[in-house]
Design a protein around this nucleic acid. Structure first.
Lengths: 262, 262
DNA sequence: AAGCAGTGGTTCGATTATAGAACCAAGGAG
DNA sequence: CTCCTTGGTTCTATAATCGAACCACTGCTT
């Protein structure tokens, strides 16, 4: 049993996105189809607690600095800035490309950290981006190490959305099989047009997939051949990283696996 | 009027800190003195909504990847990665020291972004750190531009906490006055032992203080003389930044000012 | 192996916080 | 001035919450 009130409160929070970062009271209550009284009460509660900020001039609400603090709690707990980011920086330096850390969160992949190369291609704004596992090398390499049943479900979902890079369910599942065999995945223009990526898997201490590390750059600089040249650098560092992740008990987020089958 | 239930839910969230990032059910309900039933209901609601993750082995709860997403919404809205961070990188490159962005949030200062120098001094884990305005150059330079009444309150607070760098209220207020006159603040070993910093103020489009930008490094490398040599670089870039912030209408977080006096 | 103390989690009736229509006051737009 | 929309408040029927008592399980001690 879960709390109706808190559930509503979190639905309200969910409305604050990169696309719509500020909301007026009436506007928001219309959007989520709730009485404005309750939206008002919840918004002021968030504000009192420092979770939202209400601009006194526009009377519009936006997410508070609190979320920068909470983000840090998560990053520290996942050892991102202490362990993972230094390795990402090294890879970025040696390959000259941006490095992306993707984490499996329930049935989706989230870009959790991006270390940009010196070259002027901006990815940083994609941190926090969440998407389904059938699209992009960073996500597909994760999918390749998940149970077949999950793969079927997610590929079905991709087919239903008529993803242009999926020719047929069978060929795509075969592709995933090869990805798992070779231990890496390359893709071009799937998540972003003109961007290519090469990804390798990350595992926890029980050898379960928990995410991926990718190098990403513009297509013209990161063809399949070029990325295969840089692959050994990526693999070498990820080997180190996986050895560490196997010890520190990185908290993987894969409850959907256990829950689905109970 | 604010929602009792949501208020409780947020108090529960507040328990998840860098120091105590995971909680068991009973443990947490004892800590915040709430019946474990209600804590359980709220925790599962957060979990259902992806805000918390429950480790199926330890049965302990921790903050979810969701907060990385919400952090990004805030950072994008504040133009941090698009506008501020590039300028911070340039300053870090030219001065060779780490650069810290501090934002005034209600009556406290929060380290919002840190760009580290190549030198091996780690600050990144301090992102999200929140503290009172009487300590550290980054915070004091903000305080210096706040109304005198606020300065009095906060310095009183510092005296009450017997902060070792405050000799007397009067000399400290005089110090703040000089900081405001000269437009920058230097400090040594206040926020962290062995760390010195030099800070300049950031203003919004109505010339109200909204934060500060600092260079920070180990004392031995950043004496007052050395930091004054690097000050022009900092000032030059912050001048550019302030010109931009004056246009983009950076959402300042200073409601305590307006609210206090109504 | 029985007993105990600790977990996480659930049930259900009494209690209490919430929901939402109706209401202000204020600010544009015409 | 009127109309419309805004943020915000009031008040009571109603529905969600509270919390004692409960279960099942685990690990420790006797």
């Amino acid at each position: 049993m879960s709390s109706k009130t808190v559930d509503k409160a979190l639905s309200i929070l969910d409305a604050f996105t990169v696309e719509t970062p500020t909301w007026g009271l009436r506007e928001l209550s219309r959007q989520i189809d709730m009485n404005h009284t309750i939206v008002h009460r919840i918004l002021t509660t968030f504000e009192d607690k420092g979770y939202l900020y209400c601009n006194p001039e526009t009377k519009k609400y936006e997410l508070g600095i609190k979320f920068i603090e909470l983000n840090n709690v998560v990053e520290e707990h996942l050892n991102i800035s202490s362990i993972i980011q230094p390795i990402m920086k090294e890879i970025a330096l040696k390959t000259g490309e941006s490095v992306v850390l993707t984490i499996l969160d329930e049935e989706e992949g989230v870009f959790v950290k991006i270390v940009e190369s010196e070259q002027k291609v901006r990815f940083a704004e994609s941190v926090g981006k969440r998407s389904s596992l059938y699209i992009g090398a960073s996500h597909k390499v994760i999918l390749a190490y998940l149970p077949l049943e999950i793969q079927h479900n997610i590929v079905d979902e991709g087919v239903a959305h008529s993803a242009k890079h999926i020719k047929s369910k069978e060929t795509f599942l075969g592709h995933l099989e090869r990805v798992k065999e070779q231990g890496w995945c390359y893709s071009e223009g799937e998540t972003f047009d003109d961007v290519a990526a090469c990804s390798v898997p990350l595992f926890d201490n029980k050898h379960q997939i928990l995410g991926s590390l990718s190098i990403a750059g513009p297509k013209y600089r990161l063809s399949q051949e070029q990325s295969e040249e840089k692959l050994p650098i990526l693999q070498e560092h990820v080997k180190k990283l996986n050895a560490i992740l196997g010890k520190v008990n990185f908290p993987s987020r894969r409850n959907f696996l256990t829950k689905k089958f109970i």
